[in-house]
Simulated scan of single mutants.
Amino acid sequence: MRLLIGFDLLDRQIVDRDGVPVGKVDDVELSDDARHVTALLTGQSALGGRFGGVLGRWITATTGGAEPRRIPYGLVALVDSAVHLSIKRALLTPPALEAWLDQHLIGRIPGADRAEG
């Protein structure tokens, strides 16, 4: 299927197989020959790279050096008004900020290891 990256992918909501929001497509990763999308990128560092200039550098600086979340394009089941994944959100690598908060803040709360999520 042919897609126009700027029209069909960028800024689209990403949802998992159950319709649970995952994030928005902030940028894409292309194959070496730039003919195929290999991954969807989400997060401020991906978005900052798209803006470029002073604003882009400022947005990227607020991430503390965190890499964007990378979702392999092979997990995309359907692209319509949203990008639908073939798996549940819980099976994806969490965003860098979410992982950091879990390790350094949430994980230190007594009983947090018994919380259901």
Rank of each mutant, 00 (worst) to 15 (best):
D27E: 15
A99Q: 14
H84V: 14
P95K: 11
L75Q: 10
D33H: 02
V79S: 09
D80Y: 14
V22S: 05
D113E: 11
H84T: 13
G65E: 08
P68F: 03
L101T: 01
G65R: 13
S31G: 02
V28Q: 01
G19E: 15
I5W: 05
L91S: 07
L3Q: 03
E98L: 06
T42Y: 04
V22W: 10
A61P: 00
L92T: 08
M1D: 14
R12M: 10
Q13W: 11
R89M: 04
L101P: 00
F7T: 12
S31H: 05
R12E: 09
P68V: 06
D18F: 12
S45H: 02
P94Y: 04
V28C: 03
H84S: 08
Y73W: 10
I14D: 09
H104Q: 13
W100D: 09
R12V: 09
L101S: 03
G19I: 13
S31F: 04
A61R: 10
D32Q: 03
L4Y: 08
V25T: 13
R70Q: 13
I5K: 06
G111W: 05
S86Y: 04
A39C: 12
G19M: 10
L92Y: 03
G53R: 12
R69M: 14
D32H: 00
V15I: 10
L40G: 03
